[in-house]
Every structure is written in structure tokens, then in C-alpha cells.
């Protein structure tokens, strides 16, 4: 096992704890911006759902709730492993932490694969957003449903990818001995981000796949 570096806090903080609390607050503020960004888009979708319930119902017919449910379980499990990653690093069990984070990364990958299968099957049926829609179904405004579907899941998928990148970066840093029981700010920050990605999916799943 490589040596654990002792973390030295930046000059403008009083202590490592001071730095930790400040950084974490910064992460929470960043999460606020994420909630509002996703929330605003979701609001656009809710308005669509309220004003054109028939179209929303017709669109949801094309979505497979089994895929959605499977992905929900995958993401929930990844949240568990992420949380366990933080748990292990705080106990200085760096190998276990890396395994947990590796599982999280794997879950992210599975999620994206399922997403890919869903996307390709839709695209092959011409179920594309807005003006690119070529499916024969003539339900009024149906292309708009897919605009929302792709925007919401696409933005979410992008966040999954970013989160995976961050997790990989954290795993490398753990390997280099940057984190341990006295300093785990980065791991926790990435964790909060990953849980937020999960949080968004918790709303997307019923609203897109289940509700009629």
C-alpha cells in the first residue's frame, strides 16, 4: 500500500476542518444550481403533461417501464456503493473504498448501456424530437413528447457521464493516497453530486415511464 499523504489546508483557512466545512458548503450551493436547472426543465414537461395529457399518454406507450425500473434499481444500488465508498475511506479502508467506487462506476456504465439500447430502438422507429420525428403515429404534438424525453434523459445522461469521470478521478486520487480518515472532502463532494444524479432519476422514472 502506498503511503498516505497528510493533507495540508490552504493558507486562508484556519484549519483542515474549516476548509472541509467550507468546501462542502460550496458543493451544496452547486447542487442548488443543479436542482434548479433540472427542475426548470422538468417544470416545462409538467406543463406539457397538464396541458396535453392525451399526447403524453400516447408518448409513454413507447417507453418500456421495465427498462426504466431496471435502471432505477441500478442507480439506487450505485448510490449505496457511493455512500459505502465514503464510509470506507473514512475508516481508512482504501481498497474497500476503491472497490465500492468501482462498482459505482460499473453501475453508471450499465445505466448508460441500457440508455443506449432505449435510444437506438426509439431512433430506429423514427421517434425523434420535434421536427426530426418520422414515425407514422399521428397523435397531435407527439414529437413534443419526445423532445422532452430526449432533453430530460439526455441532460441526465450527460450528468451520469460527468459523474463517472469524477468517480474515476477520485479513485485515482485514492490510489495516490490523497484521501483517508483525516481528509475525504473530494470523495464526499463527488458523492453528493452522484446522489443528486440519482435524485433526478427518482423523479424522472415515474414521471416519464409510469404515470398516465
Amino acid at each position: 500500500m502506498s503511503t498516505v499523504k497528510t493533507h495540508k489546508h490552504a493558507f486562508h483557512f484556519d484549519s483542515a476542518d474549516h476548509e472541509y466545512e467550507s468546501s462542502k458548503q460550496g458543493v451544496w450551493l452547486f447542487m442548488v444550481t443543479e436542482v434548479l436547472m433540472f427542475g426548470a426543465l422538468l417544470m416545462g414537461y409538467m406543463i406539457f403533461k397538464v396541458t396535453m395529457p392525451e399526447t403524453a399518454r400516447a408518448g409513454a406507450e413507447y417507453l418500456s417501464w421495465q427498462f426504466g425500473a431496471f435502471n432505477t434499481v441500478v442507480l439506487l444500488f450505485s448510490s449505496l456503493t457511493m455512500a459505502l465508498g465514503i464510509y470506507y475511506i473514512r475508516l481508512d479502508k482504501r481498497k474497500a473504498a476503491q472497490i465500492s467506487l468501482g462498482l459505482t462506476l460499473l453501475c453508471g456504465l450499465i445505466f448508460m448501456c441500457v440508455k443506449y439500447i432505449e435510444y437506438t430502438s426509439k431512433i430506429s422507429h423514427g421517434l425523434l424530437p420535434g421536427a426530426m420525428f418520422t414515425n407514422a403515429n399521428e397523435t397531435v404534438n407527439l414529437p413534443l413528447y419526445f423532445s422532452f424525453y430526449y432533453c430530460l434523459t439526455g441532460l441526465h445522461g450527460l450528468h451520469v457521464l460527468i459523474g463517472m469521470g469524477l468517480i474515476a478521478w477520485i479513485m485515482i486520487r485514492i490510489g495516490k493516497g490523497h484521501y483517508g480518515s483525516n481528509h475525504w472532502t473530494g470523495v464526499e463532494g463527488v458523492g453528493i453530486f452522484w446522489h443528486l444524479v440519482d435524485l433526478v432519476w427518482i423523479y424522472l422514472f415515474p414521471l416519464l415511464y409510469l404515470v398516465e
Binding site: 451544496w28 442548488v32 444550481t33 436542482v35 434548479l36 427542475g39 417544470m43
Partner: peptide, 13 residues
Amino acid sequence: IFLSSFFFLVLFI
């Protein structure tokens, strides 16, 4: 901080 984001979202909606 975090919960305030939901408050402002509700306002928007």
C-alpha cells in the same frame, strides 16, 4: 441552502 432550491422551484412552477 439545499432545501431552498426546492422552494424557489415551487415558486417557478
